[in-house]
């Protein structure tokens, strides 16, 4: 008898398949970018999960499964967290691509290109006015979040650089690098001169 199948992995594959196909259906372009990937198979490894998932793309439908006969056309290795945050980040920054890397990159681009007009979808259920207010609220919240992030980053930087003087500012680093380069050049020149003198001494 075989080992029991990995229920958690099968549930994950089913969930990703459902979410992805719903996103394609709601996408402004109806998943047009996936058409170029027709009849291809992409292997996706989401660390820390060891077993890969296989994405079978046929027309604009994506099927996800845990086993595949033969090799996938392209493989992508990334983290589960990076993949889960792809709809917000719109990129897979640390992905490792193998096999047909062009195909793998096109798959990532297709995933990143999915653009759902949530306000429009919401308006079907709530009407335009409420959908606009919810959308406006979310946009304001996201804008405030970005501002808060930028302000906090700037405050911490200034505190470390000017109050504590724990880290240098940009132009200090540049000046230091220039001085190191100058010393390196001078040492190189000195080394060559010494070598030349040694050769002269040996020949005489």
């Amino acid at each position: 008898m075989q080992a029991q199948p990995n229920l958690a992995l099968i549930s994950l594959s089913k969930t990703i398949e459902s979410v992805l196909n719903t996103a394609i259906r709601l996408d402004d372009m109806q998943g047009e970018a996936f058409k170029a990937l027709d009849d291809n198979v992409i292997e996706l490894t989401l660390t820390p999960i060891e077993s890969p998932l296989y994405f079978l793309i046929t027309h604009t439908t994506v099927s996800v499964q845990t086993t595949l006969q033969g090799e996938a056309d392209a493989a992508i290795q990334t983290t589960l967290i990076d993949f889960a945050s792809l709809p917000i980040q719109r990129q897979l920054p640390h992905a490792k691509l193998s096999g047909d890397t062009d195909l793998a990159q096109r798959f990532i681009d297709a995933l990143c290109s999915l653009d759902i007009d949530w306000e429009e979808q919401l308006s079907h259920y709530t009407g335009d006015l409420i959908a606009f207010k919810v959308g406006h609220g979310i946009r304001t919240l996201l804008g405030a979040q970005t501002n808060a992030k930028q302000t906090a980053s700037q405050t911490i930087r200034e505190y470390l650089q000017f109050e504590l003087e724990a880290v240098p500012v940009k132009h200090q680093v540049a000046h230091f690098c220039e001085e190191v380069q100058t010393i390196t050049d001078e040492v190189d020149a000195l080394e060559k001169r010494i070598q030349q003198l040694q050769q002269t001494q040996t020949s005489t």
Binding site: K14, V41, L56, Q65, L68, Q69
Partner: peptide, 14 residues
Amino acid sequence: KRHTIELSGIRPGH
């Protein structure tokens, strides 16, 4: 049935 589909390992062209 989902288990069956998963374990089939089927791919485009089959």
